[in-house]
């Protein structure tokens, strides 16, 4: 069931971005840690998994089980990779924002 992605929540977009930057190696806890490092906010494992499930439903990411390794007692990781439509969503979202940023008058910016 593919749902056409029109908009994403802010947190969803953040997760999608991190998935994209990990280039196919992202998995649940890894994303949590990355969020904490990059943005200084705490995300629970549950929140991340729930978001990934939503993104997957919207067709922006795909998941598959990785190879078993020694580090987690032989348990496989559930690896997450951004799809083509996921990437194009990110590009579109960035372009929109950059366009908007460009239009903010210098005057307003200098007030900050």
């Amino acid at each position: 069931m593919k749902v056409e992605a029109k908009t994403l929540g802010e947190f969803e977009e953040l997760v999608l971005l991190i998935v994209a930057l990990k280039n196919g190696d992202a998995y649940g806890l890894d994303i949590c840690n990355e969020i904490q490092e990059q943005t200084d906010r705490v995300a629970t494992i549950g929140a991340v998994h729930a978001t990934v499930a939503r993104l997957e439903k919207k067709g922006l990411v795909v998941t598959h089980m990785g190879e078993p390794t020694n580090e987690r007692g032989g348990r496989r990781k559930r690896l997450i990779r951004a799809t083509k439509s996921g990437m194009s969503f990110l590009v579109k979202s960035r372009d929109e924002k950059v366009k908007l940023w460009g239009q903010i008058p210098e005057l307003t910016l200098s007030k900050i």
């Binding site: 998995y27 806890l29 998994h49 987690r72 007692g73 348990r75 496989r76 990781k77 559930r78």
Partner: peptide, 13 residues
């Protein structure tokens, strides 16, 4: 289908 990945994440955590 998601159990293994989740438990792995939790243990690592």
């Amino acid at each position: 289908e998601i159990l293994e990945g989740v438990i792995g994440d939790l243990h690592e955590y």
